[in-house]
Design a protein around this nucleic acid. Structure first.
Lengths: 235, 235
DNA sequence: ATTTATAAAACAAGCGTTTGATTAAGTGGC
DNA sequence: GCCACTTAATCAAACGCTTGTTTTATAAAT
C-alpha cells in the first residue's frame, strides 16, 4: 500500500514533528493486518510493533483501535479508485452517442475485463486489498459501507448499462441486474480464487504471460455471457 | 445447521448422560459464530452462553477452543456434501458414454446451475455456511484445507470436464481450467453477493420466484460462456 | 512557555484454561 | 432393594495471560 504523507503548508507547525510519519506507518501496517486477519485478529501491540511506534500512539493519534481501523479503510477506499473509475468512464462514454454498435460494445467489454483483471492481479494492488473488497461484497458491514456505496455499486450500475445494451434488455430489469452480477462474477472470481488457480495450474506467481492467459479466458467467457461474439483475439 | 446426536448402542453407557447433547449444541452454536466473526471474534464464554453449557465444557469436551473449531468445520464439511456430490455424479455420467451431444451438455450445464443455486440460496443451507466456503476459497487456510480438497476442488475438476467438452479444449489446458473458474464465478457470485443483490432489487427475501429469476439469468450467462446456445427456456 | 509527540508503566477488563466440588447416571455386592 | 463405588458431565471459582486504554514523565520542536 502506498501511503502518502501530507506535506505541511509553509507555515511551520509547532510541537514535536513526526506525527504524520507515525500515523502513516500505523495505517499502512494495520490495513494489511486487518485485511488478512480482520479486526479482532489483530492486537494494538502487534500494530505498534509493525509500525515501530509506542503502543499508546494508537490511542493518542486515532482515538483507539477502532479509529485506526476506520482510517485504514478510508485509505483502502482511495487505493480502489483507479480500478473502477476508468471502467465507469469508458462505459458512460460509449453510451453517450446513442445505441452503441456491437463492435463498440465488444471493445468496451474487452477493456473492462482487461483493466479490472490487470489492476487486481498485477502488482498494482496487493492481494489483500482485493480480499478486503470481496469480503465486504460478500458480507456488507457498517464499517465498509462507503466501499460498497462509493466503489462497488457504482461499478455495478455501469456494468448493468453495458449488459442491458449487449443483451437488449432494460437497464433496471432484474434479469439485467442479475446478468451484470454474473459478468462481474466471471471477472472477480479470478481475484477471489487467485491462490486456488495458482495451485491448480502450478503457477508460483501470476506473471504477465499468465495474467494474459487469465484475461483471455475471462474475455471469452464475458463476451459469451453478454451474447457478443466471443473471439477475444479481436480485442 | 442440523446436528445429529449419535444414538447410543443398546449397551448402556456409564456415567452422567447428556454429553452428546451438549457437544452437539456447542458445535451448532459455534459453527455459525465462527463463520460470521471468524475464530478470534468469538469468545468461549459467548459460545457457552449460546449453547447453554458451562464455560469449562469447551475444554472438557473438545480439548479447548481450537478443538471445538475443528469439530465445527468437520460438521460444515458434512453439510456441504449434498451440494457438489450430485453435480459431480451427473457430469461424470454424461462423459461416460464418449463425447456427449451439445444437447446433453446443455442439459448438464442447466442442471449444474439449478442445483447449486437452489442449494445455496434456498433454505437448504444457511447463508453463513456458503460464506464460510467462499472465504476459504478466497483465502485457503490450513484449518479449511479439507473443505478445499474434498468439496471445492473435486467440483472444479468436474466443471473442468464439462467446460472442456463444451469448448472443445483439453481438460487440463490452462484455458479450460480458467474458463471453468469463470463458469463457477458466474454461479457462486450469487451466493457471494446475495445481500447486495437483495438490496439492489429490493428483495427482502429470496423467495422461489426470485430464485427462479436468478437461476434463469445464471443459466443464460453460463450457457453463453460455455459457447452453448444460451436459451434457458429449453432447460 | 507552549505545543506536539513519544515512552514506560499501570490499570481494569476479558480471555482461555484449570481446579476442585457437585451432580447424575450405572454397576456389583450384600 | 439398598448402599458403596465408579464413571461421565456439570458447575463456580480461580488462575495466568493478553487486551485496549490511560496516566505521567520526558523529548523535540516553535
Amino acid at each position: 500500500m502506498n501511503v502518502v504523507v501530507a506535506q505541511e503548508p509553509s507555515t511551520a507547525a509547532r510541537g514535536r514533528p513526526g506525527g504524520d510519519e507515525s500515523r502513516a506507518r500505523m495505517i499502512a501496517a494495520s490495513a494489511r493486518m486487518f485485511a488478512e486477519r480482520s479486526f479482532d485478529g489483530v492486537s494494538v501491540r502487534e500494530i505498534a510493533n509493525a509500525a515501530d511506534v509506542n503502543v499508546s500512539a494508537v490511542s493518542y493519534h486515532f482515538g483507539g483501535k477502532r479509529g485506526l481501523y476506520i482510517a485504514a479503510l478510508e485509505q483502502l477506499l482511495e487505493e480502489m479508485r483507479p480500478v473502477g473509475g476508468p471502467v465507469i468512464e469508458r462505459i458512460v462514454a460509449v453510451m453517450a452517442d446513442g445505441a452503441p454498435s456491437v463492435s463498440a460494445l465488444r471493445d468496451v467489454a474487452c477493456f473492462v475485463v482487461r483493466h479490472i483483471l490487470t489492476k487486481m492481479l498485477s502488482g498494482d494492488l496487493e492481494p489483500w486489498v482485493t480480499q478486503t473488497v470481496l469480503r465486504e461484497f460478500q458480507n456488507p458491514t457498517t464499517d465498509y459501507r462507503p466501499m460498497l456505496d462509493e466503489r462497488v455499486l457504482p461499478l455495478h450500475k455501469a456494468m448493468g448499462k453495458l449488459t442491458a445494451a449487449s443483451l437488449g434488455t432494460e437497464v433496471d430489469a432484474p434479469s439485467t441486474v442479475l446478468a451484470a452480477h454474473g459478468v462481474m462474477g466471471q471477472i472477480m472470481v479470478f481475484a477471489a480464487a487467485r491462490r486456488v488457480v495458482q495451485e491448480e495450474l502450478g503457477w508460483s506467481e501470476i506473471e504477465p504471460a499468465q495474467l494474459e492467459t487469465i484475461i483471455e479466458a475471462a474475455i471469452r467467457g464475458v463476451l459469451g455471457a453478454l451474447g457478443l461474439k466471443s473471439d477475444p483475439e479481436a480485442c
